[in-house]
Design a binder for these strands. Structure first.
Lengths: 73, 73
DNA sequence: CCAAGGGTTATGATATATAATAACTATTAT
DNA sequence: ATAATAGTTATTATATATCATAACCCTTGG
């Protein structure tokens, strides 16, 4: 994994966390809705995971945003 | 995989293919640049693959668009 | 003090994305 | 007719995302 790839995953994760908080949701709230364990969401929000499209879709639905918002710079 | 998830992957794949063609690139052009085999790109463009963020990043770079464009409805 | 809520880190099992090859169709050019 | 270009389908091996559990660090409230 290159440095720019790491940076990219960090950005995606940070965007998810930011949007989630703006909606007043905890990691646990989101996890409950999409049946994900909180360590895994944490891992994604911290950019340690090369998350798949469908996982992004589930998260986006849970926090009521469009997936594309996760990729805003 | 639910029907709406399938639909979502189809949309992402169709967006990739559309943007690639708009840039005048063949699947092989993109594959050469990102060292991917053409059956795999075909699989993604046809929505048969739950593509990861980093793979989307590579494709986006190769066709010179932002990843978020792959998620436009 | 201790319990609860929110988040992180580490780790192992299982499912699946990716990488790779071969064979196929269809179209276009020689 | 045949060679080349563009794309698809099928299949296998390997890498890794996901799922799951346990243990930890805060901060805040009782």
């Amino acid at each position: 994994m290159t440095a720019s790839e790491k940076k990219f995953l960090k950005l995606v994760g940070a965007n998810i966390a930011k949007l989630r908080r703006e909606k007043g949701l905890s990691q646990l709230d989101v996890c409950a809705e999409i049946k994900m364990e909180k360590p895994n969401l944490s891992s994604i929000e911290n950019g340690r995971q090369n998350v798949t499209s469908l996982t992004l879709l589930k998260i986006a639905k849970a926090i009521n945003v469009d997936v594309k918002e996760f990729f805003e710079i």
